[in-house]
Amino acid sequence: MGSKVKLFFPFSLVMLIGLILPVIVMVIAGFQGMDGGFTLSNYTTIFTQNYYRMAIFNSLWISLIAGIIGLVISILGAWAITRLAERTQNILIILFNLAASFAGIPLAFSLIIVFGNAGIAKALAHALHIGFLGNFSIYSLQGLILAYTFFEVPLGILFLYAPMKEIKKEWFEAAVVLGANRSFFIKTIILPILLPNIIETFIILFANAMGTYETMYALTGNNFISIPIVIGSLIDGSLNANVPLACALATIFAAVMAILVLVGNRIINRKRK
């Protein structure tokens, strides 16, 4: 018994102090007013005031678009990797890991150098008279979606690579022998096999975009209204700080994401069986 305590006590302590207690307190605090009494006003505020509804809408919208774009490109990318030499595959996977970890402030800054107001894209657009490039703003919704693809694509590739690798070349050859053409093969054999992984990857890309704070903050400060940015501005200790309200918003976020990921897992596991 003694050694089990020695094993689990430090583990539980780290998880409790670092993660579990803060999350429990956050959920409770969402039902408290600034004075500490019980109230539902934080939740009614979030669901009735336009500002918070807009934050929720913006977050859902940007994550949906970034998720779809990320998914499409990473399906192509993951497929392409599996067609290359084994050694190249291993190297590429780690390089995509590197690309995914470049997210946040360094990514935002790199994009500002290219697409910012004094950036290269603007200079090119001006010199070559390319209107749409000159009008493109990295600080806008479109700009943020572009920025998100820089980590959504590598992340999607990392999740789709392993299942894509399971698909054997011989299956296609066998299908051809049996008279199938490429598109029939993809539609009736590959898609049903990969569909659970594609759904799972989309949920992860969506959730990852929903929770992205650093990249958005580094690009737009507190100007773009989204769930993470609103939470950030409510807890940063400034004049309009309202931590209980932030707790309610964060609780909604965590609950919705947990349900989404768990339900996704459930669907996927059933499909796999």
């Binding site: 999350v23 956050m26 209980p244 932030a246």
Partner: peptide
Amino acid sequence: SILPYSIPGIVLVTGLVQLYG
């Protein structure tokens, strides 16, 4: 494995500020 996606940094730090602030 679902943890990083359901409780991203911005959510967790809200709990930290509330509890230990």
